[in-house]
Simulated assay, not measured.
Amino acid sequence: MRRGRTSAVLLYGSVTVLSLLWLVPVATAAMIAAVPIGQTREGWWHAGFGDLTLDNLVEAWREALSGYAVNSFVIAVGSVALTVVTGAMASYAFARMRFAGKRIVYLLLISTMIVPVQIILIPLLPWLRTLGLSTGDTQFLGIILVHTAFGAGWAVFMMSSFFADVPEELLEAARIDGARHLDILRRIVLPLAMPGIVSFAIIDFVFVWNDLLLGLSLLDRDHQPLTVGLANLQSPHLAQENLVAAGSIIAVLPPLVLFALLNRYYVRGLFAGGVKG
Rank of each mutant, 00 (worst) to 15 (best):
A81N: 06
A81M: 04
A81D: 09
L82S: 14
V84K: 00
V85G: 00
T86I: 14
T86C: 15
A88N: 04
A90I: 09
A90P: 15
A90V: 08
S91P: 13
Y92S: 04
A93Y: 05
F94C: 08
F94Q: 07
A95P: 11
R96V: 13
M97H: 12
R98E: 15
F99S: 09
F99M: 06
F99E: 11
K102A: 12
K102T: 08
R103P: 02
L107M: 11
L107A: 07
L108D: 03
L108K: 02
L109E: 02
S111I: 10
T112E: 00
T112L: 01
V115S: 08
P116W: 01
V117H: 06
Q118G: 09
L125R: 10
P126T: 11
L128W: 10
R129F: 11
R129Y: 13
T130Q: 06
L133C: 01
T135W: 14
G136T: 11
D137K: 09
Q139I: 10
L141E: 04
G142T: 00
I144T: 05
I144W: 00
I144A: 01
L145D: 07
V146T: 09
V146I: 12
G151K: 00
A152M: 15
A152P: 09
W154P: 14
A155I: 10
A155K: 02
M158E: 08
M158Q: 08
M158R: 07
M158G: 06
M158D: 04
S161V: 14
F163E: 10
V166W: 09
P167F: 05
L170H: 02
A173W: 13
I176E: 07
D177K: 04
A179V: 09
R180M: 11
H181M: 14
H181E: 14
L182K: 02
D183W: 13
I184C: 08
I184D: 12
R186C: 10
R186Q: 14
R187V: 15
R187A: 15
I188T: 06
L190N: 01
P191F: 01
L192F: 07
L192N: 02
